[in-house]
């Protein structure tokens, strides 16, 4: 039955889910825009964040919001360490010819992390039913508290990232490094440090989303695969390397999925999003939301 309340419900569902895709994509876009690496291990950062959240909240009994901060912080450190120990040496050795090597390197990291997780945690799923059980009813519209929590988390994370990139010195330096690394260096910006911090931020975003979505995607070794796929769809729709594009494309993808699940026959959901990706690649390969600025 299509009623206004069903439509509202679907819209809230879609935007919530989509905001998460958007943030995953934003991390991927940020890392690609600055380091030039297509981070195939992004889903595994999500996975590690989910495990960290599980152990912080369920095993250690830390309240969920603090657990979220802890897992975000841990993943930032993991990201910085990964960049310094694995990615930076490869970049230093190969100079500008390292796009494919970086891609292969992160595939390697992906496989290693998946199998480490399998050894350490086993194939078992670690999840929670809900951090905040119960639901809110506004007339006919019913929203679970968990969904509200995820939506709030997504809004706060997106807002923090946007303000950070737009208003802070470090955020400006990150954007400058993406656009013209040599000019940034000349102004005194230590771009090696920017690379490490950027990878850390991407990892922290993935970890935060893995934590927020623990009730939807329990932590298990290969949970990252599906999430990575969504992140790639978002990045293609939004424009490769465009953080804002990804953050807008995420909710769009979420809405399409939510409506497709409700109105199209089963199984069409993924077909419709794939068709959208095809259409974007053919008709507007720079992405739906990318701004083009030309250099004279």
């Amino acid at each position: 039955m299509l009623t206004a309340s069903v439509l509202i419900q679907l819209t809230i569902d879609g935007i919530t889910r989509g905001a998460m895709y958007g943030l995953m994509g934003a991390g991927l876009a940020l890392i690609f825009g600055i380091l030039g690496v297509i981070n195939m291990a992004h889903g595994e950062l999500f996975m590690l964040g989910a495990y960290t959240m599980y152990f912080a909240t369920i095993v250690l009994g830390i309240p969920a919001p603090i657990g979220l901060l802890i897992s975000t912080g841990v993943m930032f450190v993991v990201g910085v360490a990964m960049e310094r120990s694995l990615i930076a040496p490869l970049r230093a050795r190969l100079g500008s010819r390292w796009l494919i090597d970086g891609y292969v390197l992160t595939i390697g990291i992906m496989v290693v992390l998946q199998n480490l997780a399998l050894i350490v945690f086993g194939p078992r799923e670690f999840g929670v039913a809900a951090f905040w059980p119960g639901r809110q009813e506004l007339g006919d519209v019913v929203i679970s508290n968990e969904r509200l929590l995820i939506l709030a988390g997504a809004v706060i994370t997106t807002g923090t990232l946007a303000v950070f990139l737009k208003k802070t010195n470090l955020g400006r330096a990150i954007r400058a490094t993406a656009e013209h690394p040599a000019a940034a260096q000349v102004l005194g910006i230590n771009i090696e440090r920017i690379y490490a911090i950027t990878f850390g931020i991407g990892a922290a975003l993935a970890g935060a989303i893995g934590s927020l979505l623990l009730s939807t995607y329990p932590a298990y070794p290969t949970v990252g695969g599906e999430v990575l796929l969504k992140a790639f769809v978002v990045v293609i729709i939004g424009g490769l390397g465009s953080v804002w594009g990804a953050m807008l494309a995420g909710p769009l993808l979420g809405l399409i999925e939510a409506y497709a699940t409700a109105f199209a026959p089963g199984g069409w959901q993924n077909t419709i999003t794939s068709l959208l990706v095809l259409a974007v690649l053919v008709l507007r390969p720079q992405g739906l939301f990318s701004r083009q600025v030309t250099r004279p």
């Binding site: 400058a176 656009e179 013209h180 040599a182 000349v186 030309t294 004279p296």
Partner: peptide
């Protein structure tokens, strides 16, 4: 060449 940051 040019060295402004075009998107900023």
């Amino acid at each position: 060449g040019h060295s402004v940051f075009p998107g900023l």
